[in-house]
């Protein structure tokens, strides 16, 4: 199947084609750029909801309930569930589907598990491309679920319209370990399993931090904190209400546009980086000068910066002028 045909099928709502397209962009296989270029002008932006938090906090359960509700309201939902790639083997265990059983086989829901691959802890460039494919397929909402350890939690803010952070008290998530970065990017907070020991402490801490931050920044949006024991339907209604409120807020203020600009910038930067790497960096890294440079540095004959400058000078004369 050539790229255009694949693109047409994706736009036509062919699930199989979307699945294959996602593999193509994830693998950076031949033709993936053509596919993206074909799809871009033929698709429109979706609402992107980022969900993050520590392992075991209940992200997948909440994702499932949210998606079910959105589908009931006539939307088409795409879910990207991202888990870390093992730095040792390059493999990954993608287990989010275990808790998404209710969504499997449902119409208008497409779930794709993705490994973070090269992106150290953060979102790989392929995630942005995957969102585009989902949009071309007709998804109105794309949910991106990541594990909130490492950098992905802050990267997600560059991509999502709304960031939902799910925390739980106790195990593996002491108050001290909540990084300030996580608090800064959250538009909504859920404290799940609020019957566990330490829930009161966690929510007091969280609200304290948020109040402080608010004073510092004078944001117009005051991130709400919801406490739940299990994901009951009442609490889901409340959460959905808050998500809608945030959507409205984005539309009514300039925040929505700002987020859009940031996302566009990120997309541009990602592609720029990829091209630069391909065009300039890769040939240099494959070259003889590079190999010899390594030996020189290792034997302390030359300082790394010096070697780099000389290689650049040789390959791109007058680059410093």
């Amino acid at each position: 199947m050539d790229t255009q045909e694949l693109g047409e099928s994706i736009i036509g709502g062919d699930e199989n084609a979307l699945a294959r397209g996602l593999t193509l962009v994830e693998n950076r296989s031949e033709g993936y750029k053509d596919l993206l270029e074909y799809l871009f002008p033929r698709s429109s932006s979706s609402y992107i909801l980022g969900i993050t938090g520590p392992p075991g906090a209940g992200k997948s359960s909440i994702t499932t309930k949210l998606a079910l509700d959105m589908v009931d309201k006539g939307q088409k939902v795409g879910i990207l569930a991202i888990d870390p790639t093992s730095p040792f083997s390059g493999g990954a265990l993608l287990g989010d589907r275990i808790r998404m059983g209710e969504l499997v086989g449902r119409e208008n829901v497409f779930i794709r598990s993705m490994a973070s691959r090269g992106a150290l802890g953060g979102l790989s460039p392929a995630v942005l491309d995957a969102i585009l494919l989902m949009e071309a397929y007709g998804s109105n909402t794309v949910i991106i679920e990541t594990v909130g350890v490492g950098q992905s939690e802050t990267d997600i803010a560059g991509v999502a319209d709304t960031v939902l952070i799910i925390l739980m008290p106790g195990i593996g998530d002491d108050v001290q370990t909540i990084k300030a970065g996580l608090l800064e990017i959250g538009d909504l907070f859920v404290i799940n399993k609020a019957d566990h020991e330490g829930a009161g402490e966690l929510s007091a801490f969280l609200e304290g931090m948020l109040n402080w931050q608010e004073k510092e920044k004078e944001k117009d949006w005051n991130p709400p904190v919801l406490k739940t024991v299990a994901i009951s339907s009442d609490r889901m209604e409340e959460l959905l209400g808050k998500i809608e409120e945030h959507k409205d807020f984005l539309q009514k203020t300039d925040q929505g546009e700002k987020k859009g600009l940031r996302r566009a910038g990120l997309a541009l930067k990602t592609h720029m980086k990829a091209e630069l790497e391909q065009l300039f960096l890769k040939p240099l890294l494959d070259g003889e000068d590079w190999r010899q440079g390594i030996i020189k540095v290792q034997e302390r004959e030359a300082f790394p910066g010096e070697v780099v400058r000389s290689i650049l000078e040789k390959n791109f004369p007058n680059i410093w002028r």
């Binding site: 790639t85 083997s89 493999g91 265990l93 993608l94 287990g95 589907r97 059983g101 086989g105």
Partner: peptide
Amino acid sequence: LRDAGMEVIYTGLRQTPEQ
């Protein structure tokens, strides 16, 4: 399989062939 460098999706229990 993960340790052999593969990306492994695990479904959990009680799946129908359709799922």
